[in-house]
Amino acid sequence: MSLNSQLEVRNLSVHFHTIDGTLRVIQGLNLQVSPKEMVGIAGETGCGKSVTAKLVLGILPMPPAQVVSGSILFSGTDLLTLSAKDREGVKQQIAYIPQDPMTSLNPTFTIGSLLLDAIVWRQSGGSLIRYFRKRHTGREVRNAREYAVDLLSRVDIPAPEQVMRRYPIELSGGMRQRVLMATALIGHPKLLVADEPTTALDVTIQKRTLGLLQEKIEEEHLAGIYITHDLGVARNICHRTYVMYAGTVVESGPTKALLDRPFHPYTAGLVRSIPKLTREPYEGIPGQVLDYLNPPEGCRFHPRCSRRMAVCRQTSAPEYRVEKDRWVACHLFSEKDG
């Protein structure tokens, strides 16, 4: 755990209360992100990666959700202990790039309008009155507009003044995603949370968008979290990756090493499931994602694991440090812990 962290999640456990019972969604999660670093959270549907992101962003509805233990340290402050007002203040420093550019922009406003609203709101420090006053002051609006045009050009949008006048429906998916990136950069955030922003994009557009994102992380000294189910994308843009399964981190480390030499049986299974350009054989992982109402005793992956041992049925594994910066939550590595 470095002192340089922008965000540190310690031993986080989250429960969801539904009609059918209590779902134990996140279990003992640990992760850490430093500035200028892009960290990936990779996993399949339902592994809890979106829940984690929403919790960090502060947009997880808390009555059904309940944080049972753990802390989320942002610049040293535990977000979970903050008052509602302070939490809102912190939100200004955390930016969010949502998943689907098609539905994330309000279609009834022009791009300029959307950006101006966001910029002026940011400058109003949470006061509605101040916001309305600024929004209708010529000088403030002019400054905000200049800032908006600058932001758009920084995300490689051609002819930004014209784009300001356009409606989202007139823009392509790639452009819309870049607009969302520009919105995320307002006010110089410290942390960026990107929730699969390129899933809906074509592969060639995705490449360009990822390149742009990487640039911005560097330029703005941002700490970034990239949520994805696509391991190839993680390899492309994430320095380090956390692989999640059923609400726990099963393995973490530098992305390339993790994918070339996976340690945890789930990671290995996942990598093996994907058809490769080398045409090597591929096979899936047997079994089904677990039932969050009644998770199995011990390691959550053990029912599907081909290398399970007796101990796996009883206790879940802590994170063992296998190499200098690689951690695995698996009993197979208990001796290698160094």
């Binding site: 539904t18 829940v51 994602v289 009644n294």
Partner: peptide, 24 residues
């Protein structure tokens, strides 16, 4: 209605050949 069930997937039925995990 914003109850948690819109965030998660529902528990799914097991596939054949699984170890009889989550019931029927």
């Amino acid at each position: 209605m914003t109850d948690g069930s819109t965030v998660l997937t529902k528990p799914a039925a097991p596939e054949p050949g699984s170890d009889g995990l989550s019931g029927d």
